[in-house]
Design a protein around this nucleic acid. Structure first.
Lengths: 149, 149
DNA sequence: CCTTTGTTGCGACTGTGTCTCAATTGCAAT
DNA sequence: ATTGCAATTGAGACACAGTCGCAACAAAGG
């Protein structure tokens, strides 16, 4: 099993790209953030740490991290693309609370299997899939019941 | 079974809003477009027909149509929110070709059931769910095979 | 007729993300 | 170490979807 750095480096080399200091810093920061994050949060955090890396570089690096298989584009929340670390994580799906924004992860093998079947039926070669269920989480539901008008 | 107009009107009245001529025109146009569309396509079409309805009004009306249950926000394609008519249609999910953009709809009862179970497990009240599988459609696959380099 | 409340269009604005371009850097070959 | 060159960077301008504030307007009720 290789490290994140190795995996990213291998990807970059294979494409004739360089593992620059900026990319190294971005890689580290991505994995020091919580699992779900977006471009701005990443930029902000770098900025606060006085890592002067431009917005453009941050935005340019994220697709590289996606292509290298370290992170993945997940849901779009409030018109922002949200990313998620997948290095060393299994695929899973999301319950998204539309009230508090909480993201609950789940994995259901049967659903995964059924998706494969659907693709087979349609001669479709899946690259990626996302199942997002939007609604109200248990906390928000119980809170709503307590102070029901 | 009520018509689209009645359903929209009922929703509006219930919220103390009005079924204005602009909203009527927008409603008609939405249902004369093909099933999947976005705000700009709608605006363009109205414009071409010399229906002088402002962009702002179009953007303001779409959330109303969503809340009234006539249309639904589906996938985001190329940073645009895409809508879909659901009046008189059953829920379904999508295979999206990342090469040609084709959208293939499917419905799988077992997946729907399993999703309900997942929600129950997490005490989650689903409002809406989207399953999008992105990949290559059969046409694009066979085309790629023919002229494989 | 007058008031209230919702609606519209206009244009300015916001915010995310992209692009251009000149200057710089990393790396391999010399 | 030096050179050559492609990749990279930062800065700011730009593109574009979507939103907002505001003044004029319309509908409904008293």
């Amino acid at each position: 099993m290789s490290t994140k750095e190795e995996k990213f480096n291998n990807y970059l080399r294979a494409k004739g790209l360089k593992f620059t200091p900026e990319r190294k810093i971005i890689l580290q920061e991505v994995f020091s953030l919580r699992k779900h994050f977006n471009a701005d949060q990443l930029f902000e955090k770098l900025h606060k740490k006085n890592r002067q890396i431009s917005r453009a570089t941050v935005y340019r690096s994220l697709p590289l991290l996606v292509e290298s298989g370290l992170i993945v584009e997940t849901l779009r929340c409030q018109s922002k693309v949200s990313y998620e670390q997948i290095f060393g994580h299994k695929h899973h799906d999301h319950l998204v609370c539309i009230k508090c924004g909480r993201i609950i992860e789940f994995r259901n093998e049967k659903i995964e299997k059924l998706q494969e079947e659907v693709c087979k039926e349609h001669n479709f070669k899946a690259v990626e899939h996302r199942l997002g269920i939007r609604g109200y989480c248990s906390r928000c539901l119980s809170r709503a019941n307590k102070k029901s008008s």
